[in-house]
Design a binder for these strands. Sequence first.
DNA 1: ACTTTGACTATAA
DNA 2: GTTATAGCCAAAG
Length: 109
Amino acid sequence: MPKNNDFFEQVYQVVRLVPKGRVTTYGAIGKYLGSAKSARMVGWAMNNAHNQALKVPAHRVVNRNGILTGKHHFSEQNTMIELLEEEGIIVKTIKLLISRTTFGIHLCT
DNA sequence: ACTTTGACTATAA
DNA sequence: GTTATAGCCAAAG
C-alpha cells in the first residue's frame, strides 16, 4: 500500500495545478511545499515524474532564470520550447512572468 | 558509512 | 553582464 503523501506526489500535484500560460520555478514549488524542501529536491522529484502515470506538465516548470533546464529529459520530438510556444509562451515571456512574481505558483492558486 | 551527483538558487567578486 | 562559491537535501555508487 503506497503512501499518498509522498514527496514526489506533492510535487507532481503542485505542478499539475499550474494553469496554462503560466510557469513556475523549482524554488517556488519547494517553498510552497515547505522549508524542508529545496529546489534541488523538486528537480530530483521531477526526474521520477517521467515514471508517473499521471501527466505532469513539466514543461511549465523552469528554473529561476527562465531556462528550461530539463529539456534534455524530454522526448526529442516534443521539446519544452515547442510545448510552451504551443501554449503561447515564449522564453522571454517566461522571464517576464517570473520577474513579475517572486513566487508564481503562489499567485496562481 | 563516505563520496558523488543532481531538471536549483542566492550571493559575491 | 558572467563566473565562482556555498547552501540545499536526498538517492545511488
